[in-house]
Each structure stands twice: as C-alpha cells, then as structure tokens.
Design a protein around this nucleic acid. Sequence first.
DNA 1: GTGAAAGCGCTAACAG
DNA 2: CTGTTAGCGCTTTCAC
Lengths: 328, 328
Amino acid sequence: MASIKDVAKHAGVGVGTVSRVLNNTGYVAPDTRDRIEAAMMELDYHPNEMARNLFRNRTNIIGFLIPDIAHPFFGLVARHLEMELYDKGYKTLICNITQKSTREREFLDMLRRHMMDGIVMGAHSLDIEEYEKIPDPIVGFDRVLGNNIPCIASDHKKGGRLAAERLIKEGRKHLLQLAGTKTVTTPSLERHQEFERICREYGVKIDSVEMPWNDFDFKSYLYIAEDIYEEYPHVDGIFSTDMVASACLRAYAKHGAHIPTDVSIIGYDGSLITETASLRLTCIVQNTPRIAQQLAETVCALVKKQPVTLHQQIDVYLREGDTTLPQL
Amino acid sequence: MASIKDVAKHAGVGVGTVSRVLNNTGYVAPDTRDRIEAAMMELDYHPNEMARNLFRNRTNIIGFLIPDIAHPFFGLVARHLEMELYDKGYKTLICNITQKSTREREFLDMLRRHMMDGIVMGAHSLDIEEYEKIPDPIVGFDRVLGNNIPCIASDHKKGGRLAAERLIKEGRKHLLQLAGTKTVTTPSLERHQEFERICREYGVKIDSVEMPWNDFDFKSYLYIAEDIYEEYPHVDGIFSTDMVASACLRAYAKHGAHIPTDVSIIGYDGSLITETASLRLTCIVQNTPRIAQQLAETVCALVKKQPVTLHQQIDVYLREGDTTLPQL
DNA sequence: GTGAAAGCGCTAACAG
DNA sequence: CTGTTAGCGCTTTCAC
C-alpha cells in the first residue's frame, strides 16, 4: 500500500520526480533515478491505477455484452476480441445477459460512469433512441443500435444464399429452416429471408419456423427438435444455427432418417461443436477472428475519436462436413 | 461530462449536499433534493466511478485468468462465475493466456495496481513464491498457488476412480489414458494417478500418454488422436478430457472400431460437446455452477478480509452417454 | 534537474 | 439540514 509519497520520502525527493521516472517523462539525473528505483523496490511499490485513471479520464477497459459466454460461438468471438483488445492495450470486461434483467441498462450505465472506455454490444433489448442518446463509444456486434453507431456483422445474406443454393443443388425438395425469435431485429435475420427468397425463386418448398427463446440450453433444443420432427417428418433439408442443427441431427437420426442420404443439414456459425461431433456438421462459417479484429479496431477508433466506418460486413463461407451430400 | 460541481452550481447548493443525495446518506431537505435531482437530470449527470473508486479504494472488478475462454469447459465456468460475481456486485474481467506471453504477469500486476479487487487464477505458470508474495486477494481454480492461497477444485481423484471402475466393470482389459503436459502441477492430475492406481489394483493393463500442449485446437487433437490410434490400435477403453476423447472417438471409429462395442470412451469435464454429438460421450461431469459459486464466495470473502476455507473440493459424477456399454 | 502546488471528481468529517 | 474543506494517489505545469 505504499504510495508515491512514501517513495518520494524514502528516496529523499519530491513526488514529481518519482512520477517522472514512473512515466519516463522529462529529465531525471541518473543517480536520482537509481535512488528512486531502489526505494520503489524496497517498498514494493506499485502505482495506483485508479488514481491514474482518474487523472487521464480513461480506464483502458472495454466491455463486451453478450447473451452467453458459454455459447460456443460467442465464446469464440470473446476469445478473439479479448486478444485483439489486449494487443491494443485494453482489458475486456464481460457481461452475460442470459436471463431478462436490468443487466444491460446497468452495463450501459457503467459506460456512462466512466468505468469502461467503450463497449461492444453483442446483444440488445432497448429502443434505438436509448443508445443514440449515449455519447460514449458503442459498437454493435451483429446489432444495429442506431444511425450513428457502427455495426459489424457477417454477410448473413450471403450465408443464407450459400445454404439455400447448396441444398437446392443437391436436389432437395422440401426445406425447413429454424430461426430464433424476432423480438429484436438483428442483421442475422437476413439469412433466413434470403434463404426463403431463393427457395421460392427455385420453386422449392420451404417451411420457416420461429423458435421460442431458450437461453441456449441444448437440452431444450433437443425437445424442440423432437417437436420439429413430429411436425415435419418428411423434410429433406434443414438450415439453422449449429446448436439447433445438431439437435435436429440427433432427432431425425433417432427416428431412423439417414443423414445425409435422407436429410441434409447445414448449420450456421461454424463453432466448435461442428467439428467435435463424429458426424461433422456442414456449416456456414462466420469469420470470428476477422469479426473480432474489426470490432476491436472500431471501438478503439471511437475511443480515440477517430473516424470509423459505420457498416462493416464480414465474409462467410460454406464448410463441408458429413451432413450434406458430397459434391460431384 | 458534467461533474458534481456543475450539478451543485446548477442547483445552487454545495457539492456535499449533492453527494448526499447521490449516496442517500444523511439528511437532505425534500425540496433541496428535488432541485438537485432536477439539475442532475438536466445536465445528464452520471457520477464518475473512477473518482469513487479512488476514494473507496476498490473497483468492484474481479479478474478471471484462464487458458482460453473459447474452451467449452472454461467458458462454462466463466459464465457461471460472472453470474455469481454479478449478484455480489462485481464485474468480471477476463484474460486468456493461450500462448506463452507476459500476460499472466501483467494480469497480476494489474491486481497489485488496484485495477481489480481480486483475481481467480484458472491457469498459472510462475513459481509458488511469486504468488505468495502478493498480498491481494487471489483464489486458485484448480491451481495450488501457495500454502495460504485458497484453491477450489473438483474431486479429481474420485473422477479418476469412477472412470477406472466403470471401464473395469465393463470387462475392459487394456486401457489408455491421455493426460495434458505436466509442466505445472494441478489438482486435476490426480485423476490420472488414481486411474492408473486402480487399474493396477485390478490387474488391468494401462497405458498413460502425456500429450503436448496445443492451445486446445481441436484439429491438432485430431492429429494426435490419429497418432494414438497408430500406436495403440488395440486398446478397449480410453479416458481423457472431453475434447481429446471426442477426437479419439473420431479416430478409432474412422479406422473401423465400433464404439462402444470394441472400445469404450469416457470423457472428463462434461462440457457442451459431450451433449451435442450424435454419439454422446459418457463423461465425468465437473459441477461448474458449484465451482463458480465457491470461487465467487471465496474471492469475495478475501476482498472483505473475511476468513476462508483454504481447500474446497467439489463433487463429480459419471454421466451415461453412448460411448460406454450400457450397464446391466 | 527538481520540488511545490494545483487539480482530476468524489466522499466524509466538521462546522455552522 | 447544508456549505466548506481536506484528502484518495497520481500527473503536470511552473518556478527555482
């Protein structure tokens, strides 16, 4: 708990001089510096970052708000984002908003109270106006938070197209896509619109089902998948997020369908679970390293009051797995 | 950027009074309070948390150091830990230390510089003495960091026993266990010692392989699994972490082994990937909610200088999946 | 080169 | 009940 004053006293100098060696600013006589460094060592001195923060008016902390850090896709983004931010000199504060709560508002409030220099919003539930009122750095990850708030998202439209075209090319005749609830609008919904559009364009039968919100609990996805099978036992192609797709894979296989002979399944995200299963899920992969890089770059630019691009789209691609028919 | 001074001036009162309504301490005349609240509203005032932190000498931030937040097991612990800490009034700062770097030391330094009130160490690489020198709150998650540093870990010994006994009961005769590198000692290594001990006790052949460190990249686990198959094509029981076990499942199945008829596989952790695969991995489940709860409770107690239990063991259990023979 | 002093925004003690 | 003041620990002019 030694303070800069203690060090100064111990070394027989003023606090200003200690501060100078601490920050390597201005001139300090070599032997004075030595004495100060010795004093710091002896007192086991560590500069108090809170005091520095107060003076500089920044904490070097960026907040990341997400539905659930345990979700494989968000976990991956968080990992890369933390890495990128770290390299830029920032620490990452995370906040899950799995259940309905006041967490989001509190998180935004922390930003306003200067606990964080900026935040990346990977989830949202308030009205656009609320975000636009906030003068501090905010970047949306897959969320459109207002006209002047940057948003980074995958090219979901292309993702939907790639999936639809692939299934159609395989000769599938009755497709099914499962989407999350549309309580809030996010760019990712575009993939389903595009998927449906293309199916209609090719005259392929398409059913779109909106699923209830369920906190990413895989067990409940399994129940949902069972219901889906009951209602749509004869579809021959399914498109959904990795998690839901995996659940459907289990449900349809359990009822005797052979994957991919009878049913092709394409996941969306490209998270770890598409690789660890014995039957690898064919999926549309979101470029998480790139997303994280852009998020970090944008939020840091905002913090430094540098100009930023408001809309950034990250490319996606289809990765072959074992749940679609091999291409000829 | 309005400060408490601006509010005071605007409301025609002293800063002390404003502070009083801010913190609901002491008496403030109703109409004075109204005037102040109106001023705060008008100026869009938000108290500066950095200044408060400096005064109170705490940030209400707890750090969580882990190998990789994208790893399904660590992600799960992080999720629960964040929830627990949030309920206790703390925010969670995460730090990955995937690659060799100075990150760990920097993280510890942040603790000493009062950027965080305490940290939970889910990874470590320094010598015990380094941690013991640090006077600030540190709790080890599956890491013994010193004689006076609390450590919360699963009952790994029991985990190893449950796995061994199950495989032996199935009549398996040649077991194989894959362990991580032993560059640092962690309680989790006990499961392998116990596994081996029990195999010997029952006279069952057991091979233990130490794997190289690979940053939890599943693709490299697959390569390793291939090598393992080459070297141990005739084992009939495998025990390893979920990730490695899943990779082995793929490798052995690919080479024609039928799971679980020919080979039984038991994973360790009980993470999401054991549920999402079409062939669910039988596994030893670590009680992540409970672990997180204990971690949060312990680190908070330390922050408040309350007494804590130095060693806490969390129970584990075996969860039936599809990669072991059904019990009679 | 270096010390003294002001101030970052807030809280709490102390007079009135 | 409320205004004034002295710090929290640090950085940064500004004289000496």
